[in-house]
Amino acid sequence: PDWFHWTRTSFTEASRPFAGLSDVSISEDIPVEGDISVPVGSSRRDEEFSTLDEPVKETILRDLRAVGNKFIHVLYPKRSSALLRDWDLWGPLLLCVTLALLLQGGAADNDDQGGPQFAEVFVIVWFGSIIITLNSKLLGGTISFFQSLCVLGYCIMPLTVAMIVCRLVLLGSSGTVSFAVRLIVVTASFGWSTFASTAFLADSQPPNRKALVVYPVFLFYFVIGWMVLTFSPSQ
């Protein structure tokens, strides 16, 4: 509305911020409403939430509960902002390490060269999410850097689950049937990851550019999914 634009221009004249406030005229047909809360007692919030004198176990359990809560959000991606509001990188780290450890010891590794596989997963996951985040920032997204990292990291979870399933399947047999099962599992979890991360990230993007933001996300999970699918344990 007009009055909003007016205030916008006047407030940006930061040298005399309230200079034009005296002649504000609000047109009659727009009702002025809303509530203004006076923030006198809001510093109280910090005092009642003290973690200094609680047992360490409680602290750890609370953090773990928060991480688990976010896992549930990824598994059932409804458009909530819980994953965005209080981000953490514990979950992504946990998932990334699990995935890298599970991908360890494949046929692609020689006996003395186990390291690069682990490092590759790490590099792909972290650099990939950093690039996606920068891309979304460049396209005009309004999400913060670590929020995006958090979401992308947590959304690897379906693929980690798929990796566990793949290893279990590979324990049994490694024929065509096992390949078909793995293909289905990995495809499903890939779709799941992409869908979940899109559900969280899409809201922060300008509506006409969602496809441009989704494409690198798609590529990112596709590469990880491909690594999971092509994994074969050494004999």
Partner: peptide, 13 residues
């Protein structure tokens, strides 16, 4: 003073 330029920034951190 309200910085209206940054009004559309939803970054929560």
């Amino acid at each position: 003073v309200i910085d209206m330029e940054n009004m559309d920034d939803t970054s929560g951190s």
